[in-house]
């Protein structure tokens, strides 16, 4: 559910490493301009609703994504996405989760 373009998100998984550990509660806001390095909420055609980093913005205006964990699904596997598939970029972490592996 989105209120005033703000989405409350619970992160499920380890692929964002220490940036957004498992079970982090965070706020995402819809933004027009997203750039490399931003943490974004994405409706991915294959992987569903995911949180990833913007790895690069391609010349034709698409976005490639990556995780922050060595085992994260690779940039190649995630492919590139279009702007409208980005549902928001990270505003702040409300409650930081804990890594499952330590």
């Amino acid at each position: 559910m989105r209120l005033f373009g703000i989405t409350l998100v619970l992160v499920d998984g380890e692929s964002m490493g220490h940036l957004l550990p498992h079970r982090t509660l965070a706020l995402f806001r819809r933004r027009r301009n997203v750039s490399k390095g931003d943490i974004v909420l994405v409706d991915h055609p294959e992987f569903g609703r995911i949180v990833k980093l913007v790895a690069a913005v391609t010349v034709n205006g698409r976005y490639s994504l990556c995780g922050a964990h060595p085992n994260s699904t690779s940039e190649q596997r995630l492919g590139t996405i279009e702007g409208p598939q980005i549902k928001g970029s990270l505003v702040c972490r409300l409650i930081k989760g804990r890594s499952m592996s330590a």
């Binding site: 559910m1 499920d12 957004l20 498992h22 909420l41 995911i50 994260s72 699904t73």
Partner: peptide, 16 residues
């Protein structure tokens, strides 16, 4: 309250 959205951040290998 329906305010929360869960977003996956899983890895290639089963996490943890």
């Amino acid at each position: 309250t329906g305010l929360l959205v869960t977003a996956k951040a899983h890895c290639d290998v089963p996490c943890g």
